[in-house]
């Protein structure tokens, strides 16, 4: 489907809808920023507290360096002003790096992990859902769906170590942990798989439901009646309709994928953004936490929007309200 087709489909109501979402996005982000900013500042325990009591004069000097001695409103506005210039400020904990640098260094790894996991989840889920729908109400269907529900029911942090124990300690097929970038993709397989499995389960169920809806539709019956081979019926006529529920799920899935990666990054020691967030929160690294929340928030908003647009493009029936 070409870009022009997308544009054509997005006219009228749909176009308006997308514009509204685009206008909403900054509002959502600002809300998120404000919420997390004030949450952080009202918390007990400061970022510069050490086992050894720091001298008040020195502590004051450090606080001044990060503007913490100024009133909250001043801090907030200066943060927002810097943000508009694209500057997220210096990290409180990693004294030699700015938040921009930390995000630039870690985000690509998280995205890489997320993309591979999404692809895996989509592939496994769609294949299983398709197969299960074709073999509706057989033992194959039940078996696949039971697997899917088990996948949904097992937390990522149980799947991860189980994969480690089996695939890298027992069989030694994949490296146990660590990260070598795109140069050695073998490192990313297990983390991506443990991140993907719960989503594959959910996608499989959605795919199956969507396919069942479409397979019973009139136009499919017509196609069958015309004597078209079953494979052609399925691949040419039904997949596009059957995949719709999956597409609308992809947006929210990204948000869950991101939270899931906090755990996977820890288990497999991947230098991603998720771990920076958790540790930043624990260390009261205000700026770093703000930075990660902003990046993740923007990503989630973006993917929700993309998923909405895609849904509209794929489904001719959809009318946006």
């Amino acid at each position: 489907m070409g870009f022009r087709t997308i544009l054509r489909k997005l006219q009228g109501d749909q176009f308006r809808y997308v514009v509204i979402r685009l206008i909403q996005a900054p509002v959502v982000l600002l809300l998120l920023i404000t919420l997390s900013f004030f949450l952080m500042r009202f918390a007990p325990g400061g970022p510069f507290m050490l086992e050894q009591r720091t001298d008040p004069v020195i502590e004051q000097a450090i606080r001044a360096k990060y503007l913490l001695d100024k009133p909250l409103s001043y801090q907030y506005w200066s943060f927002v002003k810097d943000l508009l210039r694209g500057d997220l400020g210096p990290s409180f904990k990693h004294k030699n790096r700015t938040v921009n640098e930390i995000i630039a260094a870690t985000l690509p790894h998280s995205i890489y992990l997320g993309v591979i996991a999404t692809l895996l989840a989509a592939f496994l889920g769609i294949a299983a859902g398709l197969f299960s729908a074709i073999r509706h109400d057989t033992s194959v269907d039940y078996g696949l769906m039971a697997c899917a529900v088990i996948g949904i029911s097992l937390p990522t942090f149980v799947i991860g170590p189980l994969l480690q124990l089996s695939f890298s300690i027992y069989w030694q097929w994949f490296p146990l942990a660590g990260y070598e970038g795109m140069a050695k993709p073998s490192y990313i397989i297990l983390p991506a798989l443990s991140l993907a499995l719960p989503f594959a389960g959910r996608i499989a169920r959605l795919m199956r439901a969507g396919m069942l809806d479409v397979l019973n539709a009139d136009f499919v019956r017509t196609a069958r009646a015309k004597g078209l081979p079953e494979t052609i019926v399925i691949f040419r006529h039904t997949i596009r309709g059957g995949i719709l529920p999956v597409v609308s799920y992809l947006g929210p899935a990204i948000a869950q994928l991101v939270t899931g990666s906090l755990v996977v990054e820890k288990i497999f020691q991947i230098p991603g953004l998720g771990r920076e967030f958790v540790e930043g929160a624990l260390n009261r690294d205000y700026t770093l936490v703000m930075g990660t929340v902003i990046v993740y928030g923007a990503l989630i908003i973006l993917f929700n929007l993309l998923s909405d647009i895609m849904y509209g493009v794929l489904d001719p029936r959809v009318k946006y309200v």
């Binding site: 720091t54 020195i58 000097a61 360096k65």
Partner: peptide
Amino acid sequence: PETGAAYAYQLFPVRGAEEFAK
């Protein structure tokens, strides 16, 4: 003080160091 060295007190046995740091 502007360096923000939390362990500056390791130099405090030196004459005048503590006063300077404060």
